[in-house]
Amino acid sequence: YWITCCPTCDVDINTWVPFYSTELNKPAMIYCSHGDGHWVHAQCMDLAERTLIHLSAGSNKYYCNEHVEIARALHTP
């Protein structure tokens, strides 16, 4: 949970406070499906809480801010 998930990541173990109602003692993470995949903080991706809950409940693929354009290009005929 205490990783630098992207170039603009500002989640710090020493200063972090809950942002989403689902967070208690660690930041919400979401899995990016690009390549071998990697974890990113939901807050760093500017996800709305409703979107985070929807993604967490389903089996939808998610692409982080850095990889979403690549994913779109691969799926565009």
Rank of each mutant, 00 (worst) to 15 (best):
D46M: 14
E49Q: 11
K61L: 15
L24N: 13
L52W: 12
C44V: 00
H34M: 10
L47C: 09
A28Y: 12
V11R: 01
E23M: 01
I70P: 05
D36P: 12
Y31A: 06
A48E: 13
Y20T: 01
W16L: 03
A48F: 07
C64R: 00
I3V: 10
I70C: 15
F19A: 04
L24V: 09
M45K: 06
F19N: 15
D10R: 15
M45H: 14
A48W: 11
N25E: 15
Y31K: 13
I30G: 01
A42E: 00
C44G: 00
E66C: 13
S21P: 12
I53K: 11
P7S: 14
A71I: 12
I70M: 13
A71W: 06
W39Q: 06
C44W: 00
A57F: 07
Y31G: 04
Q43A: 03
Y62M: 06
K26M: 02
D36A: 06
S56R: 12
R50V: 14
T22K: 14
Y62W: 14
H34D: 09
K61T: 10
C32M: 01
N65R: 14
H75K: 12
C32D: 00
Y20D: 02
M29G: 03
H54F: 02
H67R: 05
N25Y: 03
Y63R: 10
H67L: 01
H75L: 11
A48T: 13
Y20Q: 02
H67I: 00
T76Q: 12
N14D: 15
L24K: 14
G58M: 08
E66F: 06
V40L: 10
A28H: 05
A73Y: 08
L55G: 06
G58C: 10
I53Y: 08
H54R: 10
T76M: 11
C44M: 00
D36N: 06
T15R: 02
C9Y: 01
A28C: 08
L55F: 10
K26Y: 03
V40H: 00
A42T: 01
E23S: 01
T51L: 13
F19C: 06
F19E: 06
P77S: 03
C32W: 00
P7D: 12
V68E: 03
I13R: 15
W39Y: 13
T76V: 09
T15I: 09
E49P: 13
L52H: 02
D12S: 05
K26W: 13
R50N: 05
S56G: 12
A73H: 15
C5G: 03
C64E: 00
S56Y: 14
I3K: 11
N60L: 12
A48N: 04
S59I: 15
S56F: 10
T51A: 11
A73W: 09
M45F: 05
I30M: 05
A73F: 02
P18S: 03
I70V: 11
Q43I: 02
N65V: 12
Q43G: 06
Y31H: 10
E23H: 01
L24R: 08
Q43L: 06
E49D: 11
Y31N: 04
W2T: 05
S33E: 13
K61M: 15
T4V: 08
L52T: 07
K26T: 09
A73P: 13
T51H: 12
H54G: 13
A71V: 12
E69R: 13
N25V: 14
R72G: 13
D12M: 12
F19L: 11
L47I: 08
P27L: 00
E49I: 02
N14E: 15
N25T: 10
